[in-house]
Design a protein around this nucleic acid. Structure first.
Lengths: 315, 315
DNA sequence: AAATTAGCTGTTAGCGATAACAGATTTAAC
DNA sequence: GTTAAATCTGTTATCGCTAACAGCTAATTT
């Protein structure tokens, strides 16, 4: 591998000039810059990450902490991870995956955390390195998330446009910001139209959705659309309706949330609110790298517009 | 952070001795070793990865290449990744995730590759760094995989023990080693008992399985058990049977393969051949690290015994 | 008992990069 | 035209660690 020195010799300048061309190009004349760029191309120069890390007292490592139970979330993070990993490597950072039962050893330059709950606030605030959260929160922690409220709002609007007359929200019984936002989007849309919301909350499992429907099917008139807080619940609702011999999408509609894998394997395929996972991953990566480079200054938050993907579970 | 120097001072030895205690403990007397260990504990010493990497001309980075389409495999690799990541970080390596549409920049010490197909052989053999494959192959490339043959063998045995009389294999129409091994396990088991195998191959999608059953249900007498090459196919077979109003598990049994997420959300829950993903991940990590440390010498392969997990889709 | 050897431990140099300072050159100012 | 200021480039030292060699002590040999 070519080093700074090789480039410097070829360009007939000092290592320092080459280094400056890379890190402070404004402090070098254009002539020299051209020379150096040329030499870099000829030698196929790529900076040595270890050396850079050493001299900057960095590790070039970002840790990705998944605080949720993997058995539940398994498919969810794969694409997010891809988005994060792609962007981090472009910036010469690598990723370390950390899950709870994996004692966290070794240093890093920053953390990306997902699945954060209230109880985690204390130790997260005590972390000495920059942190970015995936998932909205009200703690002044920088975060990236999908616009949950907008998602359910559009889902409800879509259900209305497709001619359903009743709208029931199937939520997750968790005391977390994303759930409140999803409920809020649904409620706000209905209230603007003088309609009363109807919300049920349950554990985020397909079987809870299925059992719930079978136990309460009498309460739900035909032409009802179920807006669900997750595809997993949506899948369960579909199953429950099928067990009751109801027609989807004619008699009942179902809309999920996430658009991560599960909606594809549902039958009928689930209309869902799809999250732009890869882009969100990139954004998180960008945010944590910026934060590392800018001395841990706050970055605020970024909400991504979800996309309603119509499929077979609605008309 | 404490450095070698800090430890050395506290223990009243030279940096070199401390370094030796870590890397060549046999070349240091026990007394000194104790002293140094004590000092390391007191200073809470952790080696600086960047410095180590720099001096060893390493990157301490392993790349994980996923050559398959992520939309298909999404949930599959998450736990494997966790296993790999856990073990790699223990050895002070970090992971870089690489997928095809992500130009692969930057150096690394070794590769873990999954989803390899025949056509990939050439460039993989040309890689200049150690490689370990996830997935069996006949190319003399070191690999880790589940014992595919054993898996379908046990699945078929289980179906027989549960009283099914006919055994049909639903395979994936891919010309790859893992598929042949899965078929071989099924065939061998039947042939030992003088029974004729019956194999159908199709695309690895739940919908292909479902359509296949609906088109050919007449060919399959009751008391047949379908041994599937994937949970995805198993799920589809279940759906097809249900569409034909057949009883699972009484009239027909279904056994999947993988045990990665999908079997849980099937209804009835799918009996499956579960792969020990996390352990396989650890093994891959260990293998690639050994290979890096041992100058790229061949490591052979490791097959992991799968576990048959009975559930609702068989008696 | 002197000479050889084996076994530890310490010293030096260098991995590839950068910050801080010093030095050289150009430009501006009087 | 000399001096001061501004701008650019090079030199030196350093980040934390380890290989290679040098140096020392203690054990072994003759």
């Amino acid at each position: 591998m070519a080093t700074l020195n090789d480039v410097a010799k070829l360009a007939n300048v000092s290592k320092m000039t080459v280094s400056r061309v890379i890190n402070h190009p404004d402090k070098v004349t254009d002539d020299l810059k051209e020379l150096v760029y040329q030499a870099m191309r000829e030698t196929n120069y790529h900076p040595n990450v270890a050396a850079k890390a050493l001299v900057n007292n960095r590790t070039q490592i970002i840790k990705f902490l998944i605080l949720e139970d993997l058995d539940i979330t398994e498919p969810y993070y794969m694409k997010l991870l891809v988005g994060i990993a792609m962007d981090l490597s472009k910036q010469q950072f690598s990723l370390q995956l950390v899950i709870p039962d994996n004692i966290d050893i070794g240093d890093c330059d920053g953390y990306i955390i997902t699945g954060m709950r209230h109880k985690d606030l204390d130790w997260i605030q005590d972390l000495k390195k920059p942190v970015v959260i995936f998932g909205e929160n009200h703690y002044d922690l920088d975060f990236v998330d999908v616009d949950n409220k907008k998602g359910t709002m559009e889902a409800t609007r879509y259900a209305l446009e497709e001619g359903y007359e009743h709208f029931v929200f199937i939520g997750i019984d968790m005391d977390e910001a994303f759930e409140y936002s999803r409920e809020a989007g649904y409620m706000e849309f209905l209230q603007e139209r003088q309609m009363a919301p109807e919300i049920y909350r349950m554990a985020n499992h397909s079987h809870s959705g299925s059992e719930f429907i079978q136990a309460h099917i009498d309460q739900f008139e035909p032409n009802t659309c179920f807006i669900c807080a997750s595809d997993r619940l949506g899948l369960g609702i579909e199953r429950g309706l099928q067990a009751c011999h109801k027609q989807i999408p004619d008699q009942y509609g179902v809309i999920g949330f996430d658009g991560v894998f599960l909606h594809q394997i549902a039958s009928p395929r689930l209309t869902t609110v799809k999250q732009p996972e890869v882009e969100m991953g990139s954004a998180i990566a960008q945010m944590i790298v910026d934060k590392v480079n800018q001395n841990n200054i706050p970055q605020g938050h970024k909400l991504f517009a979800p996309e309603l993907v119509p499929s077979e579970s609605t008309r």
